[in-house]
Write a protein that binds this DNA or RNA. Structure first.
Length: 540
RNA sequence: GCGCCUCUAGCUCAACGGCAGAGCAACGGACUCUUAAUCCGCAGGUUCUGGGUUCGAAUCCCAGGAGGCGCACCA
């Protein structure tokens, strides 16, 4: 029998059958399932046809003469009245006995991931976003049975039928009717090993997500993390805001920006490297607790821990100092770990990481002395600092503050495993942070180091407009000396400070790296759906 | 940017100077309860690209492309 005939006949028969099964369903009804009653009335009215069902069968019949009808991508219905998910079926019928039929009809839809035709019966694994459910088809009970057996892996189908448990104990939907919702012209990798080629996984993420459960897990976790983060911040009285991505002066961080151009205004604009300056202006404006979760862009190299665009949380809290934000940081991170991993003690890179508050707090200089045995301060002669930095492969340019930071990063940062707040940075490398109330030359700033890497950066914000102006001037001279990452003076921001900014503390957390930490992955590209890649040559 | 490594069928991988192969997918067939079903059959290739060495190159050399890791920079 030609494939097309079987397929078309199967489709139209399944359509008739579907109407029957709908009645059957409304008779049986899933108690407590509000979805059910909504389903039949949901969806767009089908203009020019009695129902979407008749539209489907018309479509199928229209291509009966086409010898390749079954393979045409356009030959699919406009909607499918799914009424439950794979996970719901498992949840609701988990106790169904072996070989029993529930007598309840369900409509499920998803992609065919495995197919095991076996003569007069056939099994298939259907997967939707909730997970897998087995389909059980029989020559007697399944219209278009032969076409069902010929479904290729990757096809989307909609299925309606009794929920049953097979003799071998697998909960299944017995296929009473079915229809193709989409065909796949490309396969989804090795059905056992999935897709391991990392380039394919990053470039063709849709394939990766279907083929690799671990990848789905990571991105699901990422989404939940951001949702939970919002909830936690909103519970604490923070207001979520959005500030410009296109900025005339890229500020708030030390980094090189991407440049773009606005035609109508005929001005160059920059993609933001941080939202910081705008968020602080909102504090001046009276929003005492604000946060933004958004994409920032830095025109820098790509590495397992760097993507040119990444997601950052920044928050600002009036009347608070950096000590308050240490408490907030450890509570937020531990809370997220609890929510997503079930515990504040999580595995990372084969080791254990205990994120339970309180985290250790130590000064940068203390940690350098402790970890590297190097006793330095901002008063150490600059030649000596340069020599130590060089000894450890660091740069030798800049003032004492920059050299101290360089020495910390080269000798100490990566050795810090457990969460630790590294406190009190040189003012020289922190042009937006407030001077330390006790330590000259230092600012009240901390970085949270977890698993040897910076997870958060925060400080008591510099609120003195005169000091801020002189810091900008210092940055300008660094810039004139060739430092492309130095900041540019921002008069709008200074005017805001001149209007009066209350004592405020600000915090930034790299969301991608937080996801990496909680999901236990080593490459930032595994937590970004479409990481930045060199465009692929399509030589065809 | 620099260094090291990788690139073979749609996917996962062999062959490492001597006829380019396997499993899965696809395609054809058998099979009435499978679980990566099994079995039989068929087909599938610019071995990333371009040069070179050689009687002979997927294999060795050079150049280029894409990717990974490390360094550098940062979050």
């Amino acid at each position: 029998m030609p494939r097309s005939t079987a397929s078309a006949a199967g489709s139209s028969r399944s359509s008739a059958r579907r109407r029957l099964s709908r009645r059957a369903v409304s008779r049986v009804s899933w108690q407590g399932s509000p979805r059910w009653s909504n389903t039949s009335t949901r969806g767009l009215p089908c203009m020019g046809c009695a129902s979407s069902t008749s539209a489907t069968s018309t479509g199928s019949e229209a291509v009966t003469n086409d010898s390749d009808a079954g393979r045409r991508a356009g030959d699919v219905p406009y909607r499918f009245a799914r009424d439950t998910t794979a996970a719901e079926v498992h949840e609701r019928f988990g106790s169904l006995g072996i070989g029993e039929s529930s007598g309840v009809v369900a409509s499920v839809a998803g992609r065919v991931m495995l197919s095991r035709p076996q003569g007069k019966v056939a099994f298939a694994e259907l997967r939707d976003s909730s997970g897998p459910i087995q389909l059980f088809a029989t020559e007697k009970g399944t219209p278009g049975y032969e076409a069902f057996c010929r479904l290729t892996l990757g096809a989307w189908i909609g299925v309606t039928g009794d929920v049953v448990r097979t003799r071998r104990g697998e909960l299944s939907v017995a296929v009473g009717s079915w229809e193709v919702l989409a065909r796949s012209r490309h396969n989804f990798g090795d059905k056992w090993r999935g897709v391991t080629d990392v380039e394919t996984r990053y470039r063709q993420r849709e394939m990766d997500l279907w083929a690799n459960p671990a990848s789905r897990r990571v991105f699901t976790m990422r989404s939940k993390l951001i949702t939970e983060l919002r909830h936690q911040l909103e519970r604490r009285g923070f207001l979520e805001v959005e500030t410009p991505v296109l900025q005339p002066i890229p500020g708030g961080a030390l980094a090189r920006p991407f440049t773009t151009h606005h035609n109508a205004l005929d001005v160059d604009l920059f993609l933001r490297i941080a939202p910081e300056l705008y968020l602080k202006r909102l504090v001046v404006g009276g929003f005492e607790r604000v946060f933004e979760i958004g994409r920032v862009f830095r025109n820098e190299g790509i590495s397992p821990r760097h993507n040119p665009e990444f997601t950052m949380l920044e928050l600002y809290q009036a009347y608070a100092d950096y000590g308050d934000l240490m408490s907030l940081t450890e509570e937020l991170v531990a809370g997220l770990a609890h929510e997503l991993c079930g515990s504040a003690r999580i595995p990372y890179g084969g080791k254990e990481l205990d994120l339970t508050p309180p985290w250790r707090r130590a000064t940068l200089l203390e940690l350098v002395a402790e970890q590297a045995g190097i006793e330095i301060s901002l008063d150490t002669p600059i030649d000596e600092l340069a020599r130590i930095s060089q000894e450890h492969g660091g740069q030798t340019t800049g003032g004492p503050g920059k050299l101290v930071l360089e020495i910390f990063e080269k000798t100490t940062e990566a050795t810090l495993w457990g969460p630790v707040f590294v406190c009190d940075y040189p003012a020289e490398v922190s042009p937006l942070a407030r001077r330390h109330r006790h330590m000259p030359g230092m600012v009240e700033r901390f970085e949270a180091i977890v698993a040897g890497r910076e997870l958060a950066n925060a400080f008591s914000e510099l609120v003195d407009p005169d000091d801020q102006r002189s810091r900008f001037v210092a940055q300008a001279s660094a810039r004139a000396a060739g430092d492309e990452e130095a900041m540019v003076l921002d008069e709008d921001f200074l005017r805001a400070l001149e209007r009066g900014m209350p004592p405020t503390a600000g915090l930034g957390i790299g969301i991608d790296r937080l996801v990496m930490l909680l999901a236990d992955v080593a490459n930032i590209r595994d937590v970004i759906l479409f990481p930045t890649m060199r465009p692929e040559a399509h030589g065809d």
